[in-house]
């Protein structure tokens, strides 16, 4: 029974990673850049929800919606100010800028919200599910997290397959210049990608903080990096890959923490990243891209 409960916790944590990984994978697919600041958008989303809930006494659901709106705007603003001017720059310059943005968000949060740890109260009020005569308890947060992940995945796949904007995203990620020639508004599409990714980050942040209720300005960076690991694991650029990678990584982390060492769980996750990159750099569902001279 212990193993089963670890497994469910792992899937729950993995669902959060999967939602965050979507943001990385979509942005990477379209803008060909690693948005280092994605993890810190999560943290901002958590703070907005926290302040709205505890400071203003707003209903949790409304607080989550406010946080999604704020994060979406933040994502668009970051893209317009910091990344858009660098679209033709070397990858090194873009990467350094992204690290700068990440660092900026962390330290701005540190000044705005203070360094003290806030205890985040769960937004989920669903009662825990008891199975097998109480031997296995699944918390409400876990159920909502897994359900949210499934809903988001399905919605996103439908959005990309069925809508014009989704098709435009596919076209831009395939070939930016050709898409432009076909009348796709490339700038608007990239902005839309950042907006969706950041909005999802807000949801992921709220779910993450509901499960692990300590909130500091550095809350976002670790899940951010791990979610990137998940995106790479599943194959960067692939949406189902983000789901598979995220859930596998969540399970590995929780099982590693339970059976190997709780202090080494981060090291285990990063070791997975390194092994994946060495054995199959394109990830589980990634496409092999050959470099042209």
């Amino acid at each position: 029974m212990n193993f089963l409960s670890y497994l469910i916790n792992g899937i729950s944590l993995g669902s959060v990673y999967a939602i965050i990984a979507l943001g990385y994978t979509m942005v990477y697919g379209i803008a060909k850049m690693l948005n280092f600041a994605h993890g810190d958008v999560i943290m901002i989303g958590c703070y907005v929800t926290f302040l709205a809930m505890s400071g203003q006494g707003i209903h949790p659901l409304a607080a989550v919606i406010i946080s999604i709106v704020v994060c979406t705007l933040l994502g668009i603003a970051v893209e317009k100010i910091a990344y858009k001017p660098l679209r033709r720059a070397t990858p090194l310059a873009v990467l350094i800028t992204a690290i700068g943005v990440s660092y900026f968000l962390q330290n701005a949060a540190l000044l705005l919200f203070g360094a003290d740890t806030k205890s985040f109260s769960s937004v989920v009020t669903l009662p825990a599910l008891k199975l097998a005569d109480g031997a296995l308890t699944i918390s409400g947060t876990t159920i909502v997290t897994i359900a949210a992940c499934i809903v988001i995945m399905v919605a996103l796949m439908l959005f990309i397959k069925k809508t014009k904007a989704g098709q435009a995203m596919l076209a831009v990620s395939e070939d930016k210049d050709a898409a432009q020639l076909m009348g796709v508004n490339v700038n608007a599409t990239i902005s839309l990608t950042f907006a969706i990714g950041s909005g999802l980050a807000a949801i992921a942040g709220v779910l993450f903080c509901s499960a692990y209720p300590t909130l500091t300005p550095y809350t976002g960076s670790m899940p951010g990096i791990k979610a990137f690991t998940a995106a790479v694991f599943g194959g960067i650029g692939s949406i189902p890959g983000a789901l598979i990678g995220g859930i596998l990584l969540g399970i590995i982390e929780i099982l590693g923490r339970a059976y190997i060492s709780s202090q080494l769980s981060d090291a285990i996750v990063f070791a997975v990243l390194i092994v994946v990159l060495l054995v199959k750099p394109t990830g589980i569902l990634g496409k092999q891209i050959h470099e042209k001279v």
Binding site: T90, A93, T97, G100
Partner: peptide, 18 residues
């Protein structure tokens, strides 16, 4: 730290933005 991060972003924009 805030200034450091702004320095990073500003330097990259200064060097690379069209």
């Amino acid at each position: 730290m805030l200034i450091y991060s702004i320095v990073l972003i500003a330097m990259m924009l200064f060097n690379w933005a069209p």
